[in-house]
Amino acid sequence: MGRTKEFDTDAALRTAMDLFWRQGYEATSMQDLVDHLGLGRGSIYGAFGSKRELYLRAFERYVDDARDGLLGQLSVPGSSMAAVRTLVRHYAEISLADAELKGCLVTNTAVELPADADAGRLVASGLETMETVLAGALLRARAQGELAADRDPVSLARFLVTLLQGIRVVGKTPVRQRFLDDTVDQALAFLS
């Protein structure tokens, strides 16, 4: 009986995530996964199931990483509103620096797999996580006197989620520099 090849499933999952993020679900073949993960089909199927299951697990990892990144950026000591403004600038900066035009895997998945119920749940979870983290920062900003008492942190958080996702979409286009410069200026003025 042959010995099962052991490999780092987390590293393989991250490699698959990057490949799916760059190419999309449909454009990524099983052979692409074999080549990029350096694993045989049997090992991939054994560890992750189907290509779809691997995609969903990789996407879930992306959402978890994004949540951790948002929490880190919005949980810094000091001004919560300054942290929100920095986040808006950060989204524009990463969109402009995205030479591969990968965009956001949440948005890419929403567009590519709108009929996939499991992917849809993960997309919704990713957006709701962004909403929750942003609303928390905006509630702190209101408590700090940086946000007017009549501003609804949840509605404002939803606006910002939509804005940030839009920034990632426009970041994939040839007009990204001028659109994102103006968008950030307007968003920061709105948040003042």
Results as ranks from 00 to 15, higher is better:
Ala119Pro: 06
Ser125Ile: 06
Val123Thr: 01
Leu74Phe: 12
Ala92Ile: 06
Gln23Gly: 13
Asp32Cys: 09
Gly24Leu: 02
Tyr91Phe: 14
Ala58Thr: 01
Ala97Gln: 12
Arg22Gln: 11
Leu39Ala: 07
Leu54Gln: 05
Met30Val: 14
Ala11Ser: 14
Asp98Thr: 05
Leu54His: 04
Leu87Glu: 13
Glu60His: 08
Ser95Pro: 09
Arg57Pro: 09
Thr86Gln: 12
Ala16Gln: 01
Leu70Gly: 07
Leu56Gly: 12
Glu53Lys: 09
Leu127Val: 13
Val34Ser: 02
Asn108Cys: 04
Phe20Thr: 07
Ala97Lys: 11
Met30Gln: 11
Ile44Glu: 02
Ala66Phe: 07
Ala117Pro: 00
Ala119Leu: 02
Leu96Ala: 03
Arg67Asp: 03
Gly72Ala: 10
Asp32Tyr: 05
Arg121Leu: 00
Ser125Gln: 07
Ser125Asn: 10
Thr15Gln: 15
Val106Trp: 10
Gly78Ala: 04
Val84Tyr: 03
Met30Cys: 05
Gly103Cys: 03
Ser79Gln: 02
Arg57Gln: 13
Thr15Ala: 15
Ala115Trp: 10
Val76Ile: 08
Glu128Ala: 07
Arg14Asp: 15
Ala99Gly: 13
Ala92Val: 15
Gln23Met: 09
Ala110Phe: 15
Leu13Cys: 14
Gln31Ser: 08
Arg89His: 14
Ser50Tyr: 06
Thr15Cys: 14
Glu100Phe: 06
Gly120Ala: 03
Lys102Glu: 07
Gln31Phe: 13
Leu54Lys: 04
Leu37Gly: 04
Val63Ser: 07
Lys51Asn: 02
Ala92Ser: 14
Glu112Val: 10
Ser80Thr: 05
Ser95Met: 06
Asp118Gln: 06
Ser43Ala: 13
Arg67Lys: 06
Leu37Gln: 00
Val63Cys: 05
Ala124Tyr: 13
Gly126Thr: 00
Val34Tyr: 04
Val63Tyr: 11
Asp35Ala: 11
Leu19Cys: 15
Leu74Pro: 08
Ala82Gly: 04
His36Asp: 12
Leu105Gly: 07
Val123Gln: 02
Ser95Val: 09
Ser29Cys: 11
Ala11Val: 15
Glu93Val: 11
Gly40Leu: 00
Arg22Cys: 13
Leu13Lys: 06
Leu19Trp: 05
Leu33Arg: 00
Ala11Cys: 12
Ala110Glu: 04
Ala83Met: 03
Glu26Asn: 09
Ala12Glu: 10
Val106Asp: 09
Ala119Ile: 01
Gln31Arg: 11
Glu53Ile: 09
Val111Gly: 03
Leu71Tyr: 03
Leu54Tyr: 09
Ala124Asn: 10
Tyr91Trp: 11
Met30Asp: 12
Ala11Trp: 14
Ala16Pro: 02
Ala11Glu: 15
Val84Ala: 01
Arg41Pro: 06
Lys51Ser: 08
Glu53Ala: 15
Tyr25Lys: 04
Val111Met: 05
Arg52Glu: 10
Leu74Gly: 13
Asp18Tyr: 10
Leu71Gly: 09
Asp68Asn: 06
Asp64Ala: 13
Leu105Arg: 04
Met30Glu: 10
Glu26Met: 06
Asp98Pro: 02
Arg52Pro: 03
Phe48Asn: 04
Val63Met: 06
Leu33Lys: 01
Glu100Asn: 00
Ser29Met: 10
Thr107Lys: 05
Ala92Asp: 01
Leu105Lys: 07
Tyr55Gln: 08
Gly126His: 11
Glu128Asn: 08
Tyr91Pro: 00
Ser43Lys: 00
Val106Ile: 15
Ala58His: 00
Tyr25Cys: 14
Leu74Arg: 05
Ser75Met: 03
Ile94Arg: 12
